[in-house]
């Protein structure tokens, strides 16, 4: 928890509709600096939508979202300010296919932060080393394996030196043998003190790094608990059912 007690991310009374479909219902959630939150729940329960609201890839319709003291609203300057603080890693990696690995990591530093070229490259190499693939810097995304691509995507986000990292099922598109290399990088990141929100069904990872488990169902946060209690004694029946399904295979 941050010392001043002000949460890094605060959602209160957040509601969102896709047309008539009520996808997020009365979401209240506070995340403090340095906390690692794992969000899980059945498919279609609104997990992606929830974290995509935090960096305004989706717009919420009601309620308030405050990130690092900045309130998300129509003002594009606030949106830009929040996006500078919040990095995101996607299920499908979404690396830029026309740019080399290095340029993937350099682009946003140059454009959004105005970092000088040499410094941007240096930082890119620093984070590529951190995700353990500096030797791939000159390659293009299509030449890398899925696990390598996802690690580049993580490095690309870290280059912006965000205060918060959002992960949306970062390992679900990966072959089993590549999941570990990505999770290792994420564990490393968690241990360095990064504030993280991860949508994932990797319960081993959750047990290891999470401070807080969030279970969603039908657009609602059904349960919030520390991982030991969440796994050992979930309060809600729906959580129990979900866990029994996901842990059984």
């Amino acid at each position: 928890m941050s010392r001043d007690g002000q949460p890094m991310i605060a959602l209160s009374g957040v509601n969102k509709w896709f047309g008539t479909f009520h996808v997020l219902k009365d979401i209240d959630l506070e995340i403090h600096a340095g906390q690692r939150v794992v969000v899980c729940g059945p498919s279609g329960s609104g997990k992606s939508t929830l974290i995509r609201c935090i960096n305004r890839l989706e717009e919420h319709d009601e309620g308030q979202i405050v990130v690092d003291g900045i309130t998300l609203d129509e003002d594009m300057r606030n949106v830009a300010a929040i996006r500078r603080e919040v990095g995101m890693v996607f299920q499908q990696f979404n690396l830029f296919p026309h740019l080399s690995v290095l340029d993937n990591c350099v682009l946003a530093q140059r454009r959004a932060r105005g970092t000088p070229k040499a410094e941007a490259r240096e930082r890119a190499m620093h984070y590529l080393e951190r995700v353990r693939i500096p030797e791939q810097a000159a390659k293009y995304p299509a030449q890398l394996s899925g696990g390598q691509q996802q690690r580049v995507a993580i490095a690309r986000s870290l280059c912006m030196e965000p205060k918060v990292m959002l992960f949306d099922e970062p390992t679900s598109a990966l072959d089993p043998e590549m999941i570990k290399e990505v999770l290792d990088v994420m564990i490393d990141l968690a241990q360095s003190g990064m504030t993280m929100i991860c949508v994932t069904h990797e319960m081993g990872f959750a047990r290891k790094v999470a401070d807080k488990m969030v279970f969603m169902d039908h657009g609602r946060i059904v349960e919030t608990a520390p991982p030991d209690r969440f796994f050992a004694a979930p309060a809600s029946e729906r959580t129990q059912l979900f866990l029994s399904q996901i842990l059984s295979h």
Binding site: R84, M88, N94, L95
Partner: peptide
């Protein structure tokens, strides 16, 4: 692909 736009926006590109 939509993901390309989203990644670019999420990185803070104008």
């Amino acid at each position: 692909r939509r993901g390309q736009w989203e990644a670019a926006r999420a990185l803070g590109l104008r």
